Measured scan of single mutants.
Amino acid sequence: GSLMYASIFGNVSAIIQRLYSGTARYHTQMLRVREFIRFHQIPNPLRQRLEEYFQHAWSYTNGIDMNAVLKGFPECLQADICLHLNRSLLQHCKPFRGATKGCLRALAMKFKTTHAPPGDTLVHAGDLLTALYFISRGSIEILRGDVVVAILGKNDIFGEPLNLYARPGKSNGDVRALTYCDLHKIHRDDLLEVLDMYPEFSDHFWSSLEITFNLRDTNMIPGSPGSTELEGGFSRQRKRKLSFRRRTDKDTEQPGEVSALGPGRAGAGPSSRGRPGGPWGESPSSGPSSPESSEDEGPGRSSSPLRLVPFSSPRPPGEPPGGEPLMEDCEKSSDTCNPLSGAFSGVSNIFSFWGDSRGRQYQELPRCPAPTPSLLNIPLSSPGRRPRGDVESRLDALQRQLNRLETRLSADMATVLQLLQRQMTLVPPAYSAVTTPGPGPTSTSPLLPVSPLPTLTLDSLSQVSQFMACEELPPGAPELPQEGPTRRLSLPGQLGALTSQPLHRHGSDPGS
């Protein structure tokens, strides 16, 4: 009898404990919600809404976190579960008819179910419309201010047509639940991603989709105040780019002037030289400038040598048109050559190039014969006009050509200096018209024969001689050997007369 009593008592207590286990969990969670309300000092109306929603959600799901349970299964099984949970929507909604099984599984994985109690606001006026909503159960109302403009029910759709707008718009009203509602919502990016994977279904979906109420604000059109608020930074940046392009296009129409201050000032006329910023005076940081632009901040801005204009002085008759350009485009679109090309026009420029290279940067340069637009006047290309890779490749080509020119210049200078040193070592320090008596009659020769300089066969020296023939050397430049009979510069000019005159010897006659 005691054994029977113990078994009955144990079973009854276990049954009672299981009955009250759900209630215990409910009270535990309710205590957490109330502690949250007390800690954050939530006001009474919002506090009442929180408690009511918790009670309804507990009775609806029995305190089970559906998302946590669903995430515990593998992905393939999750797709089947989501397809079952959203079967009513996918079967009865017209846009989803005719979709393949794979497309429906992908869509079912992207849908999220939302449960809303009465009085809950789903979308506020001015919120971004980031999702498309399908009503599965219940009814909602749409308000503009305090005026109800629409009441939607089961199988209705609200949001915005995503295929017509590249960016999400703003809501033009509040969406509030009238009863307990079940909503299926899919985010904008998720829907577009699935439709991109199934393009054959995309056309059918957009053609058959009928949005019951379009929440997009109709005033959000390009150029409206609301649109400016939504895309303020983007609009200002776009206007700045367009104004920069218009100014650079105007600059290219004036090829007669070359400016070292950047493309923003290349198009300024002579009357605007004294102004601080020219056409860019209202925004000094709008356009890029070269490193020399920092010198323009000092006094005497109108007389600054940074602004270059072609000189009108005539060229000498024998002067060549100019050196070879550094870039391939210089032959086609440049009416002034790079300062480095002028360094190779003569030997005198070679000796004085490194010492006063900055001073020569603004000297007169030889002109190319074609009066085409200036290379320095070409505006900086924006990322939309020329690819970045093209600019980098041009810079690399320019750097390689500069290296080759520097190597060639160093070799030419070394060769010229070597020839000058050899000339100085071969010439005796001094010569006299009267020579010392020699031991015999073989001493009648006034000077030792001097062998002429070897013929220069280097390509670089031939180019130097060509430049010497075309360029007029300055007075202080050293002379180079030329073709024809060679003669030492330090010898007297009348050596031929010395050989014809008898030598005057000093000596005593033994017979006297």
Rank of each mutant, 00 (worst) to 15 (best):
I221P: 10
P446H: 08
P439Q: 09
I221L: 11
A414Q: 07
S465W: 04
L129D: 03
L453K: 06
A411Q: 04
I140L: 10
Q421N: 04
F344T: 13
S341I: 06
F311I: 12
E231I: 13
R216L: 03
R404P: 03
E364Y: 04
I211Y: 03
L458A: 11
C337L: 09
P305T: 09
S286V: 08
L405I: 11
S357P: 06
T444E: 10
D190G: 02
L420V: 07
S289L: 04
S171Y: 01
L405F: 05
R246H: 08
L376P: 13
P225T: 10
G359R: 09
P325D: 13
S290E: 10
L453P: 15
G267P: 12
A477G: 10
Q237N: 10
R246N: 10
F244H: 07
D249A: 07
K185I: 10
G507M: 11
G511K: 05
S171P: 03
L162S: 10
Y198M: 03
D329H: 15
L261I: 08
P441Q: 12
L261K: 12
P510T: 07
P387T: 08
Q423I: 11
R236I: 13
Y362G: 10
R188V: 09
H504A: 12
V258T: 10
L192D: 03
Q482H: 09
P279M: 07
P452K: 08
W206Q: 11
T179C: 05
V434K: 08
S302I: 08
S272P: 09
L409W: 10
R394F: 08
L426H: 10
P478V: 11
S357A: 10
R265Y: 11
S508P: 09
R265D: 14
E141I: 05
I157P: 02
N214P: 01
L195R: 02
T228V: 10
G507V: 09
N163H: 11
A150L: 02
N219G: 06
R216T: 09
L261M: 13
S136K: 08
R265C: 12
D412L: 03
P369R: 08
E406P: 03
V258L: 10
I157F: 04
K250R: 07
R394I: 11
T248W: 07
D174M: 12
E229V: 08
L395V: 04
N403P: 03
K332V: 12
R408C: 08
T436A: 12
E229Y: 07
P373I: 06
L308A: 08
V427C: 06
E331N: 09
T407N: 03
G438F: 15
Q494N: 09
S381L: 08
G264S: 11
H204I: 08
S465F: 03
G359A: 13
S208A: 13
P439I: 05
R505C: 13
T372M: 09
P161V: 03
E257S: 11
N155E: 11
L230H: 13
T455P: 08
F353N: 13
P161M: 08
Q421L: 04
C470Y: 14
F201C: 11
G493A: 07
Q463I: 07
L209V: 09
L326E: 07
L164F: 06
R245S: 10
E200P: 03
T435S: 11
D146M: 03
P454W: 06
S465E: 12
D251A: 10
L183E: 02
P255F: 07
I186T: 01
V194S: 02
G298C: 06
P320N: 09
E471I: 08
S235G: 10
P446E: 06
S304A: 14
G493E: 13
H506I: 11
G233T: 11
S443M: 10
A343L: 08
P339Y: 06
I378T: 13
P478Y: 14
A343T: 13
G287H: 04
S293L: 04
Y165G: 11
T425M: 11
S271Y: 12
S136W: 05
G355A: 08
S304E: 06
V175N: 03
F134G: 02
